[in-house]
């Protein structure tokens, strides 16, 4: 970790995402006071995080403001995770954190120390697709494919949560993932089929 005087300790971040997010909101405020917060010292700090991503341990120095999404895409070049809105509204960036689905655009990378992250690149077992991935092909559950990584990761989480008991339940619990090509009935059918296979 940098010794720069403006650094924010890892302990601060370990208090939880909500605290950190509140800090970022101040930085981003479009006021003159907010602009002053952009003083260089503030951003030259970095945080070292150690996390497991797709079964591989990583040590990464990240800026406190860097999201998990930007860290995996721009730093680790794991570009299967997509940025559709960067505000937690579309679900395209869904990954698993400690086996639970999260919007990676709403997670600061600095808060992921000690966590286990799974992205779409880590889902298949070598050449063998995960049952949800295969079900998405079999049920034609995508067109352009841009939301698909997030849909699939969300579906894996949805099934693990026990929210895939019926088509109606799946549709409700998969509604955080937008698909503008609108393959919704096929997505629900794919999740339903995969849930049957996984259980």
């Amino acid at each position: 970790m940098s010794d720069h005087p403006g650094k924010i300790s890892r302990r601060t971040f370990m208090r939880g995402t909500a605290t950190v997010a509140a800090g970022v909101a101040v930085i981003g405020a479009p006021t003159e006071a907010g602009a002053q917060d952009l003083a260089p010292s503030r951003f030259s700090s970095s945080v070292t995080v150690r996390f497991e991503i797709n079964g591989v341990d990583h040590v990464l120095d990240v800026e406190p403001r860097t999201t998990l999404l930007d860290a995996v895409r721009e730093r680790l070049q794991l570009t299967g995770t997509k940025k559709g809105c960067n505000r937690g509204e579309c679900g395209a960036c869904t990954v698993l954190m400690d086996d639970r689905r999260v919007n990676s655009c709403l997670i600061l990378a600095a808060s992921t120390d000690g966590r286990k992250i799974t992205t779409i690149e880590g889902l298949a077992d070598g050449p063998v697709l995960h049952p949800v991935q295969q079900a998405f092909i079999d049920h034609d559950a995508f067109q352009c494919g841009f939301c698909t990584s997030g849909q699939i990761m969300s579906a894996v989480g949805c099934i693990a949560e026990g929210h895939a008991g019926s088509n109606a339940e799946i549709r409700e619990w998969m509604s955080g993932n937008l698909c503008r090509c609108s393959a919704y009935p096929q997505i629900a059918a794919a999740v339903e089929a995969a849930a049957g296979e996984i259980v």
Partner: peptide
């Protein structure tokens, strides 16, 4: 089935960004 199915479900289809 779609010929690009596999690369769309495993995250390897590379879009502009």
């Amino acid at each position: 089935p779609r010929s690009d199915g596999k690369i769309k479900v495993n995250g390897s289809a590379r879009f502009a960004a």
